[in-house]
Amino acid sequence: MPPAGASFFRRRVQGNLLKVKSQEPALAAREVSKSFDGREALGGVDFEVGPGEVVALIGPNGAGKTTLLSILAGISKPDSGQVEGHGVAWVPQQAALYRRLTVRENLLLFARLQHDAGLTSEAPQTMVERMLGLTGLSARADDPVGTLSGGNQQRVNIAIGLMAGPSVLLLDEPSVGLDPAQRERLWSFVLGLVGDGTSVTFSTHDIGEAERYAERIVVLAEGERVFNGTADELRSEVEAGGATGDLESSFLAFLRERGH
């Protein structure tokens, strides 16, 4: 595991990985705890993501991934602990869109609300055209969102999250229900944003996806952070236990060794 407080990330530049040391994390959580009806969902978790870094949150069901993301996004408040960061956008797991409205109408609604809330000064109509270009959905701008594929819905979903020009993008299981081709297009879109300097943190159950797209992996189990490092570091944690090179097997062995 990397030393506490240190933040390393790899920025993808023209297909090459470049190691850059960050001075200040784009988003950080310190000793964050949260309980629901007496059941502890998070117990003193530390988390941080550097500028332009991609971090994957993995862990079994009920580990606290969605709770941590919602606290990082400011949607729910922690019982204790602190969150520091600005310009954070959150994209929910299921597309938070109005299926009867067209792509353009959905984008325009949220652009107007962002504009009225003072989150952006860009004119709503201009922003809609920019987002249509960014998502590559200009040709389907006037189609009801309900008629789009899951992948395209997710692109609109993410585009809305990007309207205010966030420095950190939080994605809750963004590729659930997408076929491999849709998943590839989605990640191509997201990594394009990373190339522009946006930090991305995403939760997933797909360990391969975490290894493929994230520079750093955080493992949560029963509300606690049990690992924070790269995929290779996770493998090395369990090599003594006889794990193979497969990250999913290493991950499962890692959890077993720690009684999860």
């Binding site: 400011g74 949607i75 959150w90 929910p92 938070a96 109005y98 949220f110 962002q114 989150l119």
Partner: peptide, 13 residues
């Protein structure tokens, strides 16, 4: 049901 409520109340309205 459209999952929009959380997004709307996350700083927009």
């Amino acid at each position: 049901e459209e999952n929009a409520f959380t997004r709307l109340t996350a700083g927009l309205v």
